[in-house]
């Protein structure tokens, strides 16, 4: 399916800071972990936007903040003309029908005491989607869609393998006919041969139900496979946002370059010919990010300006946004 030009969701300068307390008895606010620190992008109807980054870069927090599972510190999330960040609980609940999520760990995201039927029908119950007499039929229908035997509806999560549980989680996300699904590392807890099954399933469902995905992952080749456009995050900020092919063939930001060169390619011929950019050191703490450009502690091309001035995310060529002074 070709994504439309029109944005389904616009994220504007979204920030989520978690307060850090100090002192045992009288908790004082000592600072903040800037998990997401000024992220802007839009997601077009019918597209998959990949959000790529290493652990701790804020990609999961970004996904959750967009869905208002965490209320943002500041910024806007515009969905069908309304700013989700300003909605009250009741209004949010109604609009959440259209916004769903698939979590990383299918072992902890399903209630072990509920049967599959209860898990998948619960959203319908909460949102009064259809009369209760139709639940069974709809659950069977959904299970069939995600490739599970509808007869399994009365079983419990522990009777299923990781891949099957992820299918249940996907069925639950589909139960309300959402427009937009945040897939937060949906395959990283699964084995390789099972990962491909889930990826193919997500692909098929997107075509069938005209879904829009935010696909969050640290797996560069899976993000390439799934996405139309890709945003790369580092330390709470987007450093590069562009079309998939552009990103993988001609990365602009020094971090993206290093990240792409670090992916192991499953072909010894290519591996032997590649030169790796090995980054020194670790990601700095988001509670105490460096002055200037976030990446200046590890950047092989850092110059004086990078330590003084923070680069903005700017459009360096059509459809390519990059946050680096020297691109």
């Amino acid at each position: 399916m070709k994504p439309e030009k029109k944005a389904l969701i616009e994220v504007k300068n979204l920030k989520k800071h978690f307060p850090v307390g100090s002192g045992l008895v009288l908790r004082r606010r000592a600072g903040a972990v800037k998990a997401v620190d000024g992220v802007s992008f839009d997601i077009r109807r019918g597209e998959t936007l990949g959000l790529l980054g290493e652990s701790g870069c804020g990609k999961t927090t970004a996904g959750r903040t967009i869905l208002q599972l965490y209320r943002p510190t500041s910024g806007e999330v515009i969905f069908s003309g309304r700013d989700l960040a300003k909605l009250g609980r009741k209004e949010l609940r109604t609009i959440r029908c259209q916004l769903q999520m698939v979590f990383q760990d299918p072992y902890s995201s399903l209630n072990p005491r509920s049967s599959v039927h209860e898990i998948v029908s619960e959203p319908m119950k909460i949102h009064n989607l259809c009369p209760s007499s139709e639940y069974s039929e709809r659950v069977s229908d959904l299970l069939g869609k995600v490739g599970l035997n509808p007869k399994f509806a009365n079983r419990y999560p522990h009777e299923f393998s990781g891949g099957q549980r992820q299918r249940i989680a996907i069925a639950r996300a589909l139960a309300l006919n959402p427009e937009f699904i945040v897939c937060d590392e949906p395959i990283s807890a699964l084995d390789v041969s099972i990962q491909a099954q889930i990826i193919n399933l997500l692909d098929e469902l997107q075509d069938e139900f005209k879904l829009t995905y935010l696909f969050i992952s640290h797996d560069l080749s899976m993000v390439r496979h799934m996405s139309h456009r890709v945003g790369v995050m580092y330390l709470g900020k987007i450093v590069e946002l562009t079309d998939r092919d552009q990103l993988y063939s001609d990365p602009q930001h020094p971090y993206t370059k290093a990240l792409l060169s670090a992916i192991p390619v499953h072909d010894p011929e290519i591996e032997a010919r590649r030169s790796r950019i090995i980054l020194e050191g670790d990601v700095p703490s988001p509670a105490n990010p460096p002055r200037g450009c976030n990446f200046n502690t590890r950047c092989p091309a850092a110059k004086r300006r990078c330590f003084e001035e923070e680069p903005d995310l700017r459009e360096v060529s059509s459809n390519t946004w990059c946050a680096c002074h020297f691109v």
């Binding site: 390789v192 041969s193 099972i194 491909a196 080749s221 899976m222």
Partner: peptide, 25 residues
């Protein structure tokens, strides 16, 4: 063959279906 087929290649065409292995171990 199945394992190698279920990995997306970095030079493959856009959104080609992955050859996943059916079933479970």
């Amino acid at each position: 063959i199945g394992l190698l087929g279920s990995l997306p290649k970095l030079d493959s065409a856009s959104r080609q279906k992955l050859n996943s292995i059916q079933g479970l171990p």
